[in-house]
Nucleic acid binder design. Structure first.
Lengths: 127, 127
DNA sequence: TTCTTAATGCAACATGGTTGCATTAATAAT
DNA sequence: ATTATTAATGCAACCATGTTGCATTAAGAA
């Protein structure tokens, strides 16, 4: 249920996510590994890691996709539950927030899921 | 405090938002008005309308920006308050939800605002 | 009617993301 | 250990959304 082949490039990405605990944007990753692997390889590996449940993704308010550890595939999530994400307006760091998402029901709508992005200051950037 | 000049193109956009009550993506608007006005004009007018508080914007989970009526400028919002947005997974229609956003506080973080996107089925697309 | 300048059109650009295809390299089979 | 299979990669070309500089146009004030 993991990744089919443990290639050098896959290991590089997995190692990085192992060391870093925050979310990483694709742009960051592409630039971090420029020289080490191709842009399309980064995209394709991230897709696979998300499909296999090792990573999940969300969008920042800049429209850029970010990835973080944990499974968020619908109806399979035992490794992580739906949670909001945080984005620091000052330094741009991003992370998962340890909160449950409570979806209130709304008349005339069927709500299946929700995406929540909290904006503000991280621990380092406060005051 | 409105728009400086009421040009034909501005009127076209305002008229449309007057008739439609849902949110509209820039891509839709550019395509709707192709032949009537230039792509960059659409972008620039939407910017101005948002700055002046007539419209507000949010991102769908496709990363596309959408605009809807109402003021959401920080510290000036009397015309609208922060609210979640809805996006129909079936037909793609999008709208504002009449709910207050309650931001829970999180240790080590200063939360200034939050973006909430609810995904599911709209009235027309249910069952 | 004239003047000022905000707003537009256009073309060229920037960036994020995708795709087809030949080549490479994990891993299974021998 | 060697070979065969095919998933994965690199590359280049592409697409879409969004931005910008600049010459031209047209609101609306004078």
């Amino acid at each position: 249920m993991g990744v089919s082949r443990k290639t050098k490039t896959v290991k590089l990405l997995l190692d990085l996510f192992d060391r870093k605990d925050c979310a990483l944007s694709i742009v960051e990753l592409v630039s971090t590994f420029s020289g080490k692997m191709n842009k399309s390889t980064v995209y394709r590996i991230l897709n696979r890691l998300e499909e296999s449940g090792l990573l999940h993704s969300f969008l920042g308010n800049d429209g850029l996709k970010r990835y973080a550890k944990g499974d968020q595939r619908p109806a399979k999530s035992k490794n992580t539950t739906m949670h909001p994400h945080f984005l620091c307006e000052d330094c741009g760091i991003s992370s998962c927030l340890p909160l449950e998402i409570s979806t209130s029901s709304i008349p005339n709508y069927t709500i299946k899921s929700s995406e929540q992005l909290y904006l503000g200051q991280c621990n380092n950037c406060q005051m």
